[in-house]
Design a protein around this nucleic acid. Structure first.
Lengths: 347, 347
DNA sequence: GCTGCCCCCTTGATCGATCCAACGAGCGCC
DNA sequence: GGCGCTCGTTGGATCGATCAAGGGGGCAGC
């Protein structure tokens, strides 16, 4: 039980200890106890020690509701937990949420999850905001035309977005994102360094700005190295079997020796095609995915993949949130973080 | 924007609307407004309508902190978000959390995540409990000797565990779990129905009660069908490469035609060995995993896997929590749910 | 016409912490 | 010794909702 021994011995009282209880027991006033908790510097050292000991003895912890009511804060950060699509993408989401919980805790915040409602996308936000249940929001999917960010901006609600406002240059909100193009540059350069010259791209349809961003990393790196790209790019839907088909077509028509993919899902498709054709990933054909999902890690032939620094993203988001909430001027409107490359057998 | 049009037009006021504001505007007392929200039956229909309209006009939503303070509840459910181990197991966790958020919302609760602290495993619980920040907890990993469940029981804190108290028959707390043995029975019977007679088991070390439970499902089904089991079982660590080794040994020594595994991770290992030996999963050798993780779904050769009904688990947990919190006698101390089998190409 | 009763609504008190303004002790200075 | 200053402490008010009683009007019954 470690450092909580003194508390663990006794049961939780039916009515929890209040600040007044501590004050009476310690022979001081309520305000003094409050200061001992929130402004220890204001107390004489011996008084502080005595109050602290009483707090420990009684196992006192300030009532959150009372504090929230008075201070008009909740120390909670709202996060809409989007529905599981059983795809690859939300494995990263899991990692991100965990990082966010950790980073928030260090800043004195806890994370409140609320469900998504497709009919009324801002409903959850609206309720939490009006009832002052959370201090701020973290908005994830900032896909094209995402209404949440715009709506929250209008409401002047404090929030930080994970993802750039692709569609709207005039967006006034703060964001943190990962540089996808830098990730694919990293992947492409890695393959070039290994001697590949015919490197193919399998990405998403044109209407995905994230997909186009990632594609640009491959494109520029190829051009910068004077390598051909014509006939080596393919844009498909983000499902395994589309990736497999695209790989088959590209292999037949353009004979690439390596593939860079916009997602691990597509990379899985490539691996499937290689498997059917008895080609060894890594030896015969190199493959790089994106997201460093669990699949990439667990797959028998480890899949090289671009890894987003989600831990850093979370830390940065919380840091920015604190600035917003303390009404400090926010230094920068957007922060772009660099991904890394998790190199495995497939390349 | 749909049904929230009337609110979306205006910005959030600097000081949110209070119950008193609504009361004044509607020409009634505060209590009447409160009743309109919480006990509509107490009001005359026309009064109710008038108050409701005023609430809509002003966009009023009760202040959570004030309500929490008065009612001594928070409408929050605490969930310790365990650290990501980058393994297969927590993909299921992700699915579970999502289900829990949904089920909680329908019951009027939100889910509060807090981080795990290895040094002080009950620290997070203790704080939230004493500060009345949450109404109840959901405890997940009820592995052998998990201190949380015991501690929470001692504190008489309301909580429901996802997982049986394996080590302690006298445990007095309420739990919901998935019948692992039933899952492996399902898997084994499925293979027998397909004509397999030499079905091997790859599971976890003996000190895992969950692993032993799952193993028993395979064992009893084999015995019930008069099939041999000697030399067909292996107990290893839950990592891909151990699964691969175990599969290789079993193939050499006992020539099984099918594998049932305690996890998708181990099943991945088996698939790896098959791939090396140029054996086609599903055609030459059948493989069944456990957890229906994303890996199982995305893997080029779809992996048949036992799927835990996590949505039902979440619903059941919330249902039980409501009973606990309303001080109703809880019907049953434990609920065991049946998993299903997601059948894919590997079997 | 008066009492009694029920229904519907209103008023004052309360939850437990923090903010505010004022008070008292201790100390140095003239 | 008195004055003013600093520092720590104090009681009272406050946040916004709900709880517990307390009215007032209408209708039935004698």
């Amino acid at each position: 039980m470690g450092r909580s021994e003194h508390r663990s011995g006794s049961q939780l009282p039916v009515t929890p200890t209040t600040l007044a209880d501590v004050a009476e027991r310690a022979g001081v006033s309520r305000q003094t106890v409050s200061n001992a908790v929130n402004n220890p510097d204001l107390l004489r050292p011996d008084t502080l020690e005595r109050v602290r000991q009483t707090i420990a003895e009684l196992g006192y912890s300030p009532n959150r509701a009372a504090r929230n009511l008075r201070t008009r804060t909740s120390s909670l950060i709202g996060l809409r937990f989007t529905p599981t699509q059983e795809g690859t993408a939300n494995a990263a989401m899991d990692r991100f949420v965990h990082s966010l919980v950790e980073a928030s805790e260090e800043a004195g915040y806890a994370v409140l999850l609320f469900p998504a409602d497709d009919e009324d996308p801002v409903g959850g936000y609206d309720n939490l905001l009006r009832s002052t249940a959370v201090d701020a929001f973290v908005v994830t999917d900032t896909y094209l035309g995402n209404p949440q960010a715009t709506w929250l901006s209008q409401q002047r609600a404090p929030f930080v977005a994970f993802g750039r406002p692709w569609d709207d240059d005039g967006a006034r909100h703060v964001w943190v994102d990962v540089d996808g193009a830098a990730g694919t540059r990293l992947a492409t350069q890695h393959l070039i360094d290994r001697g590949h010259t015919r490197i193919a791209w399998i990405g998403w349809r044109k209407d995905s700005p994230i997909g186009e961003d990632r594609r640009s990393g491959w494109l520029t790196t190829m051009h910068d190295n004077g390598l051909p790209t014509t006939g080596l790019a393919s844009r498909v839907e983000d499902v395994v079997h589309s990736g497999a088909e695209a790989a088959a077509v590209l292999l037949d028509e353009s004979a690439p020796t390596a593939f860079v993919c916009a997602s691990d899902t597509l990379a899985m498709g490539v691996l499937h095609t290689l498997w059917i054709r008895q080609l060894a990933p890594g030896r015969d054909i190199a493959v790089v995915g994106f997201d460093d999902s669990q699949v990439a890690q667990v797959y028998p032939v480890g899949l090289t993949s671009v890894r987003q620094p989600l831990e850093d993203v979370a830390v940065e988001i919380v840091r920015t949130l604190r600035q917003l909430l303390s009404h400090q001027p926010v230094e920068t409107r957007g922060v772009l973080l660099e991904p890394t490359l998790a190199i495995r057998e497939s390349s």
